[in-house]
Design a protein around this nucleic acid. Structure first.
Length: 557
RNA sequence: GCGCCCAUAGCUCAGCUGGAUAGAGCGUUGGUCUACGAAACCAAAGGUCGCAUGUUCGAAUCAUGCUGGGCGCGCCA
């Protein structure tokens, strides 16, 4: 719709012999209804160049634009020189008919052009269960991936497994400790300091008792064994949230495939030795200080394999890369970028999304530590309590750059306070209407062949159409800015308009979908179908289910 | 001390590349069911957009400084 208006403005400018590129014409949605359906600031932009007052320019433009009589209902000049457009309902009706593609799916803008994106997210250490912070990372990463796919990118989801190095040894020692305790070789006083603690380990060790028995003494192998099992548990939890990775990239494979050596070779000129350690001269590439790659005891820092991993990523030649990191890894961005640059790749192909923290709450009460597991409440426990839909939605409803309060109480509520419920309820209501419609046997006669939408003339109906037509722009903005939370807000707006419209039907039959002339019912059905489709599209991207029916609660007295 | 993020209504937050009277939800107060699901809806009250300076036709939005909060600053991972 915006582009249609912009094109008409461009044509008008041409007639006035003013040269101005179409792409630069800004058409926007005014905040206030009185300012029209759309507006443009073009007259103000041109004022300086043409050495004329904005209002004069606007007047000339409007004179030409007024010729599009069947498109614009009214054009006004307002304020310092805004041109406000009021569109004919028929313009909206036409636009509404054109939201579908050949497969009867909503048309989506293709901004990706099949470009290849690698999105790395979550990458949780396989040393224990995931907590809520991981949950946010997983969901935002997944939604971003889904969204980018929808707007035409070729997306690969990747999980980097830290299965090599100190934490795996620590895990192994922890396993050995719990094993010995299990078979009675050790008592509580001999508890080692640097082991992972937790009920989950105790249970896992008990389960793997026989395998561990074979490995006693070799903590590395025990660690690997436990790590594999813990990774499987992570995958099971992710499956509950409908999250799957295309590839689990093993850190140890970097060693076995020689990537580490390759990395050292590639950085040869950018490193130096000092105090028996090997340093990466990262300050040459914008980092605060140089970083150690190989410690003076000969072992590698965590950073080294990470560089090798990114070398591997870039060798696989994607158009760009997105890393979704937790806020606690913020300090890592600069040095990783320095490394990428030192390896000779363009740093602007590597983007970072920094997730802020999650505070778990129950009403007004903060949920901190859980006594049982000695760890933060796990992601699994959250899913158990509020279900996968609410879990996903709540992680998504804030911009990733602000801290998130996750209220478990709210997430469970079946009322409009709970946004997930509110959205799903709106969807279920539409489905319910459609069921009634097919009971009446009218469904079959609704064809698009001679569809007449002119009866959709209520202000509420036009409002819904206007908002509906914004969905491509919402998706585009969310994708471009990497801010998928916008989708949820948009869906809530639509649901609200629909609920309002629906309720008006209680008193006024004109608002009832199932009443009126056949053409009217048909037109209303068509509109609701489009609304439902937008809701479903949004649900799909957010990974929330679209229930057609929701169980009524017990009647309360 | 340095770096990243945040600060908007009583609470939780939106606010698109700077635009015309700053928006939702919850909470508060009042109202709406013989009718497509009241699990819903409507209305009202409620704001020096943390503070200051600057950029310009125009700033919640951009820049700089300050204040307050979160995270990070290892030859840890």
């Amino acid at each position: 719709m915006k582009t249609q208006i912009a094109e008409r403005i461009a044509q008008a400018l041409k007639k006035l012999e003013i040269h101005f590129p179409l792409e630069k014409i800004e058409v926007e949605f005014p905040k206030v209804k009185e300012h029209g359906d759309y507006s443009t600031n073009i007259a103000m932009v041109l004022a300086k160049e043409l050495k004329n007052t904005p209002r004069k320019i606007a007047e000339e433009l409007v004179a030409v634009l007024s010729e599009y009589k069947d498109f614009f209902q009214k054009i006004e000049i307002a304020g310092p020189g805004f041109i406000n457009f009021f569109l004919e309902p028929s313009a909206y009706h036409e636009a509404l008919k054109n939201v579908w593609d050949k497969n009867n799916e909503l048309v989506l803008p293709n901004i990706g052009n099949n470009k290849k994106v690698l999105i790395e997210f979550l990458s949780a250490n396989p040393t224990g269960p995931m907590h809520v912070g991981h949950g946010r990372n997983a969901v935002v990463g997944d939604v971003l991936a889904r969204l980018l796919e929808k707007v035409g990118y070729q997306v690969t989801r990747e999980f980097y497994i830290n299965d090599h190095g100190v934490q795996i040894r620590t895990l192994g020692r922890s396993g050995q400790y719990y094993y010995k305790r299990l078979v009675g070789d050790i008592n509580d006083e001999q508890l080692a300091d640097d082991v992972y603690r937790g009920e989950y380990l105790e249970i896992l060790v008990k389960k793997l008792k026989e395998e561990i028995k074979e490995l006693v003494g070799d903590t590395l192998l025990i660690g690997k064994l436990l790590g594999e099992h813990l990774l499987e548990k992570i995958k099971v939890e992710l499956e509950r949230l409908d999250i799957r990775f295309d590839r689990y990239f093993s850190e140890s494979s970097l060693y076995s495939k020689g990537k580490i050596d390759e990395m050292f070779e590639a950085l040869k000129d950018k490193t130096y030795e000092r105090d028996g350690a090997l340093w990466f001269h990262s300050t040459l590439f914008g980092d605060d200080k140089d970083r150690v790659l190989r410690k003076n005891d000969g072992s590698l820092t965590y950073f080294s394999p990470d560089i090798a991993y990114h070398l591997d990523k870039f060798e696989r030649n994607y158009d760009f890369y997105i890393n979704v990191f937790g806020a606690d890894h913020g300090g890592y961005i600069q040095r990783l970028q320095a490394a990428v640059e030192a390896l000779g790749y363009e740093t602007n192909r590597l983007e970072f999304i920094l997730m802020q923290m999650v505070n778990l709450k129950r009403g007004d009460e903060k949920v901190g530590m859980s006594k049982r597991s000695g760890a933060y409440v796990t992601l699994g426990e959250v899913i158990d309590e509020v279900g996968p839909d609410a879990t996903r939605f709540f992680f998504m409803m804030r911009s990733h750059q602000t801290t998130l309060d996750f209220d478990l109480e709210l997430a469970k509520k079946h009322s409009s306070e709970n946004p997930v419920f509110y959205l799903q309820y709106a969807h279920a209501r539409i489905c319910s209407i459609f069921n009634k419609l097919s009971e009446k046997g009218e469904n079959d006669s609704l064809s698009e062949a001679n569809l007449d939408l002119t009866s959709l003339d209520l202000p509420e109906e036009l409002e819904m159409i206007k908002l509906l037509l914004k969905y491509p722009e919402v998706m585009m903005q969310a994708a471009v800015k990497r801010e998928p939370h916008r989708i949820g807000f948009y869906l809530l707006e639509i649901a609200k308009l629909f609920q309002n419209y629906y309720t008006k039907g209680k008193l006024n039959p004109r608002y009832r979908v199932l009443e009126g002339e056949k053409e009217q019912i048909q037109a209303k059905f068509y509109l609701l179908t489009a609304i439902r489709a937008v809701l479903r599209l949004g649900f799909k991207i957010l990974g929330v289910s679209a229930p057609e029916y929701m169980e009524a609660p017990e009647a309360e007295e």
